[in-house]
Design a binder for these strands. Sequence first.
DNA 1: TTGAAAGCGCTAACAG
DNA 2: CTGTTAGCGCTTTCAA
Lengths: 344, 344
Amino acid sequence: MTDGTKNNKVNMKTLAKVLNVSIATISKALRDSHDIGDETKQRVIETARLLHYVPNPYASSLRKRSSNTIAIVIPEIADSFFSQAINGIESIVDQEKYHALIYLTHDSYEREAQMFNDLTSGRVDGVLMSVASNTKDIKHIQDLQQMGVPIVFFDRVCEDIPTAKIKTDDFNSAYMATRHLLEQDCKNISLVTIEGYPSILQAREEGYKKALTEQGIKPNDNNVISCANKYTHDNIAFLKQHIDTVKPDGIIATVEHLATTTYLACEEMKLNIPDDIKVVCFTNQITASILNPPLTTVLQPAYEMGRKAAELLFRHLSGRPIQMERENIILPSKLVVRASTGTV
Amino acid sequence: MTDGTKNNKVNMKTLAKVLNVSIATISKALRDSHDIGDETKQRVIETARLLHYVPNPYASSLRKRSSNTIAIVIPEIADSFFSQAINGIESIVDQEKYHALIYLTHDSYEREAQMFNDLTSGRVDGVLMSVASNTKDIKHIQDLQQMGVPIVFFDRVCEDIPTAKIKTDDFNSAYMATRHLLEQDCKNISLVTIEGYPSILQAREEGYKKALTEQGIKPNDNNVISCANKYTHDNIAFLKQHIDTVKPDGIIATVEHLATTTYLACEEMKLNIPDDIKVVCFTNQITASILNPPLTTVLQPAYEMGRKAAELLFRHLSGRPIQMERENIILPSKLVVRASTGTV
DNA sequence: TTGAAAGCGCTAACAG
DNA sequence: CTGTTAGCGCTTTCAA
């Protein structure tokens, strides 16, 4: 290992010695305090630059009891919705000169709870999160909030925690998707969802049922199937079996990776999309337009949701109180119609 | 704001008071030091649990001069390669009980340099990175390394920095892809790449040229086109123009988002893939198999690369020195042949 | 306008 | 085996 090890670190003490002033003066000058003379301020800033002084974040965090960092807690990352949301979050974090720790729960309540317990340490000033789908007990979230750490939810929100929430209109977009299939003459529409069941998927299911009911079709539980939240061969087989027994003429896939699962199942069964069966999927994947056939999607405003959530978090961090009515925000998703539902 | 603010924070002092021992005893007991009696140790651990004691990471970082956190510095995140790589990284970070800060350079040297300057503060114990494509000056990287912060590169490595590097065989996989197209009877193959030109794209270009040369085809610079690194309409137009003038019968797209660009350009030009033009793309997108037509891809071992990079970083962090010969690792990519190159 | 001093919560000699 | 002590680098009263 190259040995220019961390000895040569320049800190406020170094600067103070070089400039023949006290450490306090350095500190104040660098924070542009009003009670330091302009001339001294300039000298301090100048030599800080010259000596490549960079403040020690941990010393300052310890002292100030705030860390200039936030946590992003999400179920997974290999998913276009979450990657795009992180992009949105990052745009604000960067602008605010904050830092972002990333935590993946892998959709597990246990991991989520454990992570929250750690966050209890004061490691972050706030958190942005999408809750795990099997999170029922929300004590870990409440505990952290009670400690004064603001939490803002996006997408998979937790309704029982009073705080800002950024959602998309899951109920309505599922309703629209279902209506669209009905208008395309589907008579037997299945909803393909996942185990664990986060609340947003419930909303989607309800939107689906409402659209059916409105058309005088009684929702049938056999038309709702829960896959594993993974892209696997077993899942494809499971879906094929469903299609084989229920014989749907329309499918609404509620999460991204189910697009591929559905397409492959249909292909293996020699079912033509859209002639034999029509498909719409909740996904942000850019490739939707070049699939075979192009896929009708419910496109979520991922980037904007991430950005908005971050904005609200920073608003809270800068001391403005939460105004629930104004911060329970719903950004609309968009139904993008393509050939998979028969409209060319 | 709920006022149970951070006053009720329990720290070592609290525990010491409660148990009537010194703070040092608490500290040692919790770190399982050998010179604390088993009985005291138990009592300490027990009441720590009872009072929900969580150590303050910043105090400990300040004192120990190490933070138990690493930085992940990458160009972008809405890209299946990087999301999958992060998944691999996270699996190790989690296991090591570390934390990961995420930084996006948006492929800009300036941002990258600025971030590295910040990391100079001791904020992280090590960094995992994929360099920005326009990074020529590497002083910022050298400076951080000189300070004793280990850096491990993955995918977009920087050859001039002596450290561990995890790559995939870009030269060879481009060579294989080109050979494949040649075997499919392509006579006029274009390479679609991006501006800025990271070294891995150079390797891909060289592999492409080698395959051509071997078959007695002289590489023609007109067949190499640099798009903007974005998915836009302008890019599609640009590519269409290229196809129109050069009339290639085969295209190798060197980065993920160019798959969609290429497919849409062909569609707009009424070119049939694979009959009129064959396409292969470097991408990890799971939807490749359900595109129209299914896309032949060069699939990179993203998860494994992230994992391996993290493993090596932690090996360095635990004091083992770098062994360049053994840590310049190449994980093979795989050519996955599908219908877009004419083989059904 | 500047400086002295007291910590933030934790770790690590060193003594006992 | 346990306790005392001296900081890590920075911020913030309070005095000068």
